[in-house]
């Protein structure tokens, strides 16, 4: 077993450089280390100027997503050992503007997320005295999978359409819209449909399917989007082809 491993990290220091550059670091190889541990070693012992985001180290906060050997992954959940031998390439997630080193800007996603009203929409709030909104386990199961999203942006980075057409609302935001659409307590389906039935909503998607392949929590945004297309189409059939069946 080797005792060191080389990390090739993409640096971008806007005050010094006009574009990104690669930097190599030699770090100890430990079988229990994740890529994030290696980055922390660099930060602590080799180069304190390296910038990247991380917080929980346990796949919950969703802030340490990066491209490792070209694949979008959570660096806190990728063992050095499981990567092919040779140097490991670490880059910021693709598809976003890079602020510095491995840090990208996600303002665009945050603005899009707001557009799909990712909260329980009620036409009229029920008075507290009437008690809580009750839900059966079956009703919970309808949306639970979508609620596992940790906003790590791996799906956006895997989606070529988001990179090509940045107007596209994108996988996680649509999956989160479905999370509330399928919630028995929610009444916002129509408002979300109005936003998502546009071209920059569900129709820009051509079902590459990589968003679901890279999702660390198995949310399956690709399925969320295809189901949305089917329901939008059925809606359209009801209101256009069968005008008497208008909702």
């Amino acid at each position: 077993m080797p005792d060191t491993v080389t990390l090739e990290v993409q640096r971008y220091r806007p005050e010094e450089e006009t574009g990104p550059a690669w930097q190599r670091y030699e770090v100890p190889f430990r079988p229990e280390w994740m890529v994030l541990d290696a980055l922390n070693y660099i930060k602590d012992h080799l180069d304190g100027t390296l910038s990247y985001r991380w917080a929980c180290r346990m796949g919950v906060c969703g802030s340490c997503g990066m491209l490792v050997n070209g694949e979008p992954v959570l660096t806190c959940a990728t063992y050095l050992e499981e990567l092919p031998h040779g140097s490991i390439r670490v880059e910021p997630l693709r598809g976003f503007p890079v602020i510095r080193d491995l840090i990208f800007d996600l303002t665009d996603f945050l603005n899009k997320l707001k557009r799909v009203s990712p909260w329980l929409v009620r036409k009229k709030e029920q008075p507290v005295a009437d008690g809580e909104y009750r839900q059966t386990p079956d009703q919970l199961a309808e949306y639970k999978q979508y609620s596992m999203c940790i906003n790590c942006m791996l799906c956006y980075s895997a989606c070529p359409i988001y990179e090509l057409e940045p107007e596209f609302i994108g996988p996680a935001a649509i999956a989160l819209a479905q999370r509330y659409n399928h919630d028995s307590r929610d009444e916002g389906v129509q408002a979300r449909m109005d936003v998502l039935s546009q071209h920059d909503g569900i129709w820009a998607c051509t079902f590459v399917g990589e968003c679901s392949a890279v999702c660390p929590t198995n949310v399956d945004p690709a399925a969320a989007i295809q189901r949305y297309k089917l329901s939008a189409t059925l809606d359209w059939v009801k209101s256009t082809v069968l005008p008497w069946g208008k909702r």
């Binding site: 129709w203 189409t233 359209w236 256009t240």
Partner: peptide, 15 residues
């Protein structure tokens, strides 16, 4: 053009 045509085109595509 988007709003009215995309679902119809997708329906034809899927069928």
């Amino acid at each position: 053009m988007r709003r009215s045509q995309e679902p119809g085109l997708w329906a034809l595509f899927s069928a």
